[in-house]
Amino acid sequence: MITYENACRIINRSRGSAVSVTTMTQTKYWNEISEDPDLDIGISNGMSKASSIALGVALGKPETTVLCLDADGSLLMNLGSLATVAGMGPKNMFHFVFNNGIYAITGGQPVPAPGVEYAEVAKACGYSASYRFEDTETFDNNLPKILQSEGPVLIELIVKGEPQTDGVDQTWESNAGMPRQLRALRKRLTGKDDWGAGGPYI
């Protein structure tokens, strides 16, 4: 079984200048490992919509690789997005699904159907390719070649669940993090610092 930390380290090694869109536990580990935070957005307050935001970025910047670090519980909540992504067919989108079978953020309750094989679902929806990895070495050996292929590609990772017991950080400052990241990424992608303050947090 793969750990979050190892998965994020492996992805980061092959990242290049890709944009990353993360959510939930992946964000926690990715933030510790990423070397280019201006290209990162961690989706919170989003109820499972990382794949949809990643699709928008991928369609809007087709020359930029977009990595979405999604999770099984999140994707179940937005499963139709697999069909939406497949329908648009972004060649620059690589959709990782960290499958631990539980809702880690809320303490480790099982997802409704822990046996769903997301790589198979993505394949049936029409992704260009999909893969399922259960061990670190095989994933590490195959990822560089996968990222050279044409998307959309879904990469399912069977990971060891890490239930959290310390709750979710909900402060004015913590909730300002995502709007700030989104503006930093737009500035990085467009070269324009033109998205001013708005909303309750910034």
């Binding site: 949809s52 928008g56 930029t64 997005s81 069909a83 939406t84």
Partner: peptide, 20 residues
């Protein structure tokens, strides 16, 4: 950009806006 469920529309649009 056709979406499968209306809840996808705003986040897809947000991603597009972020990309300029």
């Amino acid at each position: 950009v056709p979406v499968a469920r209306e809840g996808e529309a705003i986040p897809v649009a947000a991603g597009l806006f972020i990309a300029g």
